[in-house]
């Protein structure tokens, strides 16, 4: 339930909630099969990307989403045609979930002409307008007011579209975030800000970066509604995020949502994650939404190991093909560096 501004604090963010195994956390067999496959597609895509990075095929920064996939998958199913999603630099999952071709995504990481943005942006600057992914922003927090601008435009034109703006817990301290939230609240813009709280701002835990434990307490100061929960399943995430989007769409009410989640990999490929111990990571693995969905498929729907294996093989084949496409694609033409700097008016 989306709470009004004031409300009690919920779970302690540094320890995972032990999710219930009751069926209410899961959807139908068809839902779970679809969600499992989509989460697996993101995970296998990123594992392929990580391998390519290790082989020196990809350079720059590569921030993996592994562990957080359920959020992108739930978001995809909530989008209506005029909605747009603005995210930061941990964005591969959104692109894959929203329908961007894995080959184009991989080619972007490879810096190839066939990439999502022609090899101009790289991992941190994914934009796929056709699939409602409006960035792709790598300066922490500077997309927060831009996303408010998308919502402003919808309201200005009287359109029904909602903007969903994802940011990390590491973007909560910086100024542009608060100026964006101020204007969203002041002008009652149809926007949902979703803080993906994966507990670490790079290597710094929340306790050393944000003065309150519950980030949604900040909503009160911006006249935003608020919602906060740990992501343990696509079903629950979809239901609760969907309610936030309904408020934004139907009442033009900005909402601040905090999703407590966990990334199993480092902040980027260069981060071995020495600031957290194995026990902590293992505890979170037990509430990994993808793993739990797989278990539900076995337990609730009687899906066999062979069937699960077959899904995985299909997904791996799809991502192998994406890698092949990226490797065989041409580099951008030399003159491409001059393109799209200014529009010809």
């Amino acid at each position: 339930m989306v709470l009004p501004c004031a409300g009690p604090m919920t779970s302690h963010a540094s320890e995972p909630v032990a999710p219930g195994d009751d069926n209410a956390h899961f959807g139908s067999k068809e839902d779970n099969l679809r969600w499992y496959r989509e989460m697996l597609r993101i995970r296998r895509f990123e594992e392929s990307a990580a391998q390519a990075y290790t082989r020196g095929k990809i350079s720059g920064f590569l921030h993996l989403y592994i562990g957080q996939e359920a959020i992108a998958v739930a978001t995809k199913e909530l989008l209506q045609p005029h909605d747009q999603v603005v995210a930061a630099y941990r964005t591969h999952g959104f692109a894959i979930a929203f329908g961007s071709a894995p080959g184009a995504c991989m080619a972007e990481l490879y810096g190839k002409a066939t990439g999502l943005v022609g090899g101009i942006g790289g991992s941190m600057h994914f934009f796929d307008r056709k699939h409602q992914l409006w960035g792709g922003y790598a300066i922490v927090g500077n997309h927060v007011p831009v996303a408010a601008g998308h919502a402003f435009a919808a309201k200005y034109r009287g359109e029904s579209g909602v903007t969903l703006c994802f940011l990390g817990d590491g973007a909560v301290a910086i100024g542009p975030t608060h100026e964006g939230w101020t204007l969203a609240g002041l002008w009652k813009l149809p926007i949902v800000y979703v803080v993906e709280n994966n507990l670490y701002s790079m290597g710094t835990p929340l306790s050393r970066s944000i003065p309150v434990e519950d980030i949604t307490l900040k909503a009160a100061g911006y006249n935003m509604a608020r919602e906060r929960f740990q992501v343990t399943s696509v079903a629950e995430t979809k239901a609760r995020l969907g309610e936030a989007m309904r408020l934004a769409r139907e009442e033009s009410r900005p909402v601040l949502v905090e999703l407590i989640t966990y990334r199993f990999r480092g902040h980027s490929m260069s981060d071995p994650g020495k600031y957290r111990d194995k026990d902590e990571v293992e505890a979170w693995r037990r509430s990994d939404p993808m793993e739990r969905t797989m278990q539900a498929l076995r337990r609730l729907h009687g899906i066999s190991e062979e069937e699960l294996e077959a899904i995985d093989e299909e997904v791996i084949a799809e991502m192998d093909e994406a890698v092949r496409f990226a490797e065989e694609s041409p580099a951008p033409a030399p003159e491409a560096r001059f393109h799209n700097i200014l529009a010809e008016s």
Binding site: P145, V146, F152, P176, E179, G180
Partner: peptide, 11 residues
């Protein structure tokens, strides 16, 4: 300024 410059860009 960051807020309304950003809103302008987004619009």
């Amino acid at each position: 300024e960051t807020g309304f410059a950003g809103v302008g860009i987004g619009a």
